[in-house]
Each structure stands twice: as C-alpha cells, then as structure tokens.
C-alpha cells in the first residue's frame, strides 16, 4: 500500500467520530480502516461520509463476518459484495480474523476461537485459497485474542504458521492480541512473536484492552494502548519490514488529540526501528 510522506499509522474509521475526523486538522492518520460489513449496501448520509473519507484517505478493510474458521460453507454472495466494495474504494489490504463468527447457519457477530487442530488447519487453508481466488488478492489473517482454547491439539503459533504457510496468505499481526493472550494463557509474548511467520506480516494492529481480573484481560478496543503493548510493538517492529500499522479504537472515543498522540508515538517508534536494516525471521 502506498502511504503518503513515509507515514505508516492509520486509524479505524468509526461512525462515532467520522465527522470529526473528516474535518479534523488534529488527527492525521496515514490511512483509515473500516469493516466492509458496516458499509456495504448503505446509502444516504453514511455513504456520503464514506465517499468523503475515500477522497481524503487510502482505505484498508478489516472484515468481521467472513467467518473463515466456520464449519459452514463460505457465503459467496457476501464475498462477491466484498469484492465489489474493495474495487469501488481501491482497497489495498483486506484482512479477516482467524476465528469463526457463524456456525450451523447462525451468525453470532463475535469472534469465537477455532480448535487448534490439524483438520481445522486443512479446512481453513482450503477456504483462504478460495477467498483469495475470488477476490484476486491476498487475504491477511489476524491472530485473535481468545479467552479459552477449545479442544486444542497444537499450540496457537503452530496453528497460525501452518495456515499462513499452507494458504500463501498474509498475516495481520495484532500486537495487542498477542499481549492479551500471553497474559490470559501465561506465555511469553516475545517468544510467541518469534514463532510466527514474520516474513508474511503485511499489516499490524494496535489497540487498548481492559484487565477485568487478576487473570483475565478482555480485548475491548475501548482504552488507550498501555505501555507494555507499546514495548511489545517496538520489539515486534524491530523484527519486521515496514508495513502499515493501525490503531483500533471502537469505544470510549477520547478527544482526537489523544488519538493523535498515540499515532505519533507509534510513528516515532517505527521511524526508529524501520530506519535500520530489518531482520525478517
């Protein structure tokens, strides 16, 4: 994706602050990201806002309902709508969650954990290939936060790596999700990151979260990014080639100055780490 002025950091385009963002001289993301589900088939006021946004910023898409890990068949009608949307708005990156949100013909509108199993790996590889063939572009798959494993037969990093290797897809590395999972499942976040297919990372997500007990963090996207996640971000970017980075903020939207402060901090980090020769694992 071509980014202006060597800037790398974008922000999630949310209806809650779309008007402010479009008029803002304070918040200056390099690009915006949106969920196509929230905009496809929408006209009127919101279509106008989207068109204005598209004139001002490059757009990436981050899907919610493709349900790549579902036992159900892919919804091809919906996939073709996504394809049309991607072309209409010249979307350069389309990512989805490595999870499932639909099962037994019922959408659930949230991200459920897939069993880390060999048969699930094969199932998902075939589905990603089908998606990529239809879209005629690579899909980037995001490591999701999860609060319990289900019927796992392998570890998460192996599960992700085998899917990325087998499908040829890209990876959206969500640094906050790694932190959340390392806390909830008691593993070392940096070690986990080195086990991922870092040469396939095409996109990074950063976000805030909420610790609700001594043992559980919920991935809320409703708080500022914490210091430890910034530290993990710096470590992660030191292992990667330059890629676009997105700040996700979906709830408790603060003043735009605060969001820009987070964007600036991330830009400062990557301007340091991506100035050097990069280590690609």
């Amino acid at each position: 994706m071509q980014l202006k002025d060597n800037k790398h950091i974008g922000i999630g385009f949310r209806k809650d602050f779309s008007e402010e963002l479009l008029d803002s001289t304070v918040l200056k993301p390099a690009f915006i990201e949106l969920a196509p589900e929230n905009w496809i088939g929408m006209g009127g006021y919101w279509k106008k806002q989207l068109d204005k946004a598209a004139e001002k910023f490059p757009i990436t898409c981050h899907g919610l309902s493709l349900s790549i890990g579902s036992p159900d068949d892919l919804d091809l009608d919906f996939l073709y709508k996504i394809k049309k949307f991607i072309k209409q708005y010249n979307v350069q990156i389309y990512s989805e969650h490595l999870s499932y949100a639909k099962c037994d013909n019922a959408h659930l509108y949230d991200l459920l954990p897939i069993p880390f199993r060999k048969d699930a790996v094969k199932h998902i590889i075939a589905r990603i290939k089908q998606v990529q063939d239809i879209l005629e572009m690579p899909l980037a798959i995001e490591n999701v936060s999860y609060y319990t494993p289900v019927a796992a037969e392998m570890d998460e990093a192996t599960f992700i790596s085998e899917i990325v290797d087998g499908s040829g897809c890209n990876m959206l590395l969500d640094v906050n999700n790694v932190y959340v999972n390392s806390f909830n499942h008691n593993y070392n976040a940096k070690e986990f990151i080195t086990k991922l297919p870092l040469n396939k990372v095409s996109y990074i997500h950063m976000a805030g979260h909420e610790q609700i007990s001594d043992t559980v963090i919920i991935d809320t996207h409703g708080e500022a990014v914490i210091e430890k996640v910034f530290e993990l971000f710096e470590y992660t970017t030191s292992l990667l080639k330059p890629v676009p980075v997105l700040l996700e903020r979906d709830f408790n939207i603060p003043e735009l100055e605060e969001l820009q402060t987070e964007l600036t901090r991330m830009e400062t980090i990557v301007s340091k780490t991506w100035k050097k020769e990069h280590v690609i694992a």
């Binding site: 036992p71 199932h123 289900v150």
Partner: peptide, 15 residues
C-alpha cells in the same frame, strides 16, 4: 468440509 466431525461438534457446542 475438511473438518472432522469431532472438531465441527466442538465448534457447534461453543456457538
């Protein structure tokens, strides 16, 4: 589907 019935079943139960 390349999923085993047992994997599908776990996913169905959670959903």
């Amino acid at each position: 589907s390349l999923l085993k019935e047992s994997t599908h079943e776990q996913q169905s139960k959670l959903a």
